[in-house]
């Protein structure tokens, strides 16, 4: 499974310290989420577009990703302009659109996309392992970080397992449709995956114990904060806060 599509790259943002990136992103996301009206979210969107530009990502992949992530926003555009209970209305013959509703939907769209783009630029440009590593430096509880490590590590393994079972099922002439047999088949596939997972986790725990596991997950690589990381973190944080109080 190819999951970390944006993490491969060699841009300035890819090389930054993930700890700084996480902190800056949190600040950006919070201020952007609580901002109001249209102008401030729009400026946040411009800032996030600039960040994505800095990360030099593959444009088509990026576009697909953004369209997918806007699924919920699409629903909002269908309902809000019609059902928003505020005047003035724009009369379009059969339906009346609320101007305030359009503005509201637009504001949500701007905020949502600004945060999505910033997330892609700042988080998706690090590998999951370095993010987990950074989380442990940022005082996230050890147990949680350890589960995150193992959780991510075994997704591709379990997925391969799923592909294998699915292939076996298809080879026996399974066709999926809206019927009980299909649901039963999928349920048994998931059931089989679960049982394999229980067994695998016992093996993993034994292997960990055999290697002297004592509740701590040692980190063998350490981050080094460079001047450029500091500078980036401070400047971007100041910009994010200034935009909010514009």
């Amino acid at each position: 499974m190819h999951l970390e599509v944006f993490a491969e790259g060699n841009s300035f943002l890819h090389k930054l310290d993930p700890r700084i990136k996480i902190l800056v992103l949190l600040l950006f996301a919070i201020f952007c989420a609580i901002s109001q009206n249209l102008l401030i979210p729009f400026i946040y969107l411009l800032l996030s577009i600039f960040l994505v530009w800095l990360a030099k990502l593959h444009f088509k992949t990026l576009l697909n990703r953004i369209i997918g992530a806007n699924f919920f926003i699409f629903f909002i555009w269908i309902f809000i302009p019609i059902s928003y209970q505020k005047n003035p209305y724009i009369d379009l013959g059969i339906i009346k659109l609320s101007w305030e509703g359009v503005k509201y939907a637009l504001s949500i769209t701007l905020k949502c996309n600004a945060i999505i783009l910033a997330t892609i630029a700042l988080l998706a440009t690090s590998s999951i392992f370095s993010i987990a590593h950074a989380m442990s430096h940022l005082k996230v509880p050890d147990k949680l970080v350890m589960i995150f490590f193992l959780f991510y590590r075994y997704i591709s393994v379990i997925h391969e397992e799923y592909i294998k079972i699915k292939r076996a099922v298809l080879a026996r002439g399974f066709k999926s449709g809206t019927n009980l047999h299909t649901y039963k088949t999928y349920a048994y596939i998931v059931g089989a995956l679960l049982i394999k997972s229980f067994q695998r986790s016992t093996e993993i725990y034994r292997a960990m114990l055999a290697r002297g596991f004592n509740g701590i997950f040692p980190l063998y690589e350490h981050f080094e904060l460079k001047k450029i990381d500091f500078l980036f973190g401070i400047i971007l944080s100041i910009i994010v806060i200034l935009i909010y109080f514009l």
Binding site: L150, Y154, I155, I158, Y162, V190, S201, I204
Partner: peptide, 14 residues
């Protein structure tokens, strides 16, 4: 810990 992690992976795949 490992059991919870691997079960989480399985639910993610599901």
């Amino acid at each position: 810990l490992p059991e919870v992690a691997i079960l989480s992976s399985t639910f993610f795949v599901a």
